[in-house]
Amino acid sequence: MNVFRLAGDMTHLLSIVVLLLKIRTTKSCAGISLKTQELYVLVFLTRYLDLFTRYFSVYNVLMKLIFIGTSVAIFWYMRYHKVVKQTYSKDLDSFRHYHLILGCFLMALLIPFDFSVTEVLWTFSIYLEAVAILPQLVLLQKSRNIDNLTGNYVFLLGAYRALYLLNWIYRFFTEIHKIRWIPWISGLVQTALYADFFYYYIQSWRKHEELKLPA
């Protein structure tokens, strides 16, 4: 474990806490893409299949359970909670995310980390996480005004993978000394997708203006 990876995991956890807080305190999920949340549930379920077969550390097990539990809880709130589900902007959340699932699955079959079921699914989860934010970014572009918590959620979610890029550089030089093409290219793509959001987020923060993405 290195400081970049720990910071990355804590940032990731914080992003989820911020989203849960927003939904629970405001009883609203306006501006949040249910499709992105569904993709993240899929990412965690297909990535953590080794939860009960391979033990790394208490931290690893605990965090996997927290990520699965919180992402399912957010999905449940947005899909089934009687008050929250009324605030879901269904018409704005129009990204065809099933294409992302199919595309990433085909990619994982063609370029898997290893030709075993768990490794194909692990690769699928890496590819899927790289594009999982797309429905959310599209929804933000359609939203007139983006509330602070939603902006912070997306920023933290993007920042965590950027910290993971630093973690991978660190691990390359200190222990692995080999290129891990699949997670590293996926992680670069994932972080690059946030580039323009980061730009507008930092601008709005510096100018103390409301966050607005160009359509």
């Binding site: 790394f56 965090m63 692990w122 691990r171």
Partner: peptide, 10 residues
């Protein structure tokens, strides 16, 4: 899987 295959990451 050999060590350092990043499966120890979240």
């Amino acid at each position: 899987l050999p060590e350092g295959e990043l499966h120890d990451e979240l």
